[in-house]
Each structure stands twice: as structure tokens, then as C-alpha cells.
Amino acid sequence: MLLKLDFDSEVPIYQQIRNQIVVGIASGQLSPGERLPATRALAEDLGVNTMTVSKAYQQLRQEGYVITDRRSGVMVRQREAGVPVVPEETVKGLRLRLCELRLAGLSREEILQLCDKLCDEEVG
């Protein structure tokens, strides 16, 4: 999976890393159990500070997308069977985005259509 950072963007670098990894996992480009680069290796690869990558990984770990193993490093977390647990932050974020879409003038049907389209694109 290719990770592209835009240094002109207002989104912080660590957030860009975190977001793209989440998209990568959701779209299947990063499969469960797949090893991610070590913090230092990814920082070296992107030319960013080690702390930036560390912060992105830490957030991904807290949100349950990745796990850290002492021997294997950072890995994409296996999805557990059963009722999916959506992080509280994600629900909050989604609620905010829905409000923004409503304020932009979209109806409920249009919002659902948009979500459907995005789901097809990102998740398959």
C-alpha cells in the first residue's frame, strides 16, 4: 500500500499517516496480521520525525486498528468475530460529519447515497 503525505495540507502529518492506514485496512490493502514498518523505518522513509510516526501508531493502537508485538513490531489487528466495536471517537466524528452534510443542504436520502458510494469506493 502506498502512503502519500501532503506537506501543504492543513491536516497534521501524524493524522495523515493514521487516516491512510485506516483507509488501507478498511479497503483490504493492508490485511490483518500484516506487518507495518517500524517507527524509525517509516520516519526514515517519509523523511519525518520519529515522534510523528510514533504518535500516529499510538493513536492507531488506542483505536484498536493495530497491535504492537515485541518481536514482530507493529501489525494490523485481526478482526474479532462477533459484534463489531466502533470506537467512541469514530461515532463522535461521524455525528459531526453528518451535521456538516445536513448544514451543507443534503437530505437524509442524499447523505445515505453518498455514504453508499463512498463505501463502494473504499471498502468494496
Binding site: K4, L5, D6, I21, L36, D45, G73
Partner: peptide
């Protein structure tokens, strides 16, 4: 865009 860095996560690992 000019200010972009690209990394292949699998290769970087």
C-alpha cells in the same frame, strides 16, 4: 503536488 512524500508500507517494513 510538489510537497509530497510517498512510502510503500509493505516495502518499508
Amino acid at each position: 503536488p510538489s510537497a509530497q512524500a510517498v512510502s510503500d508500507l509493505t516495502a518499508a517494513a
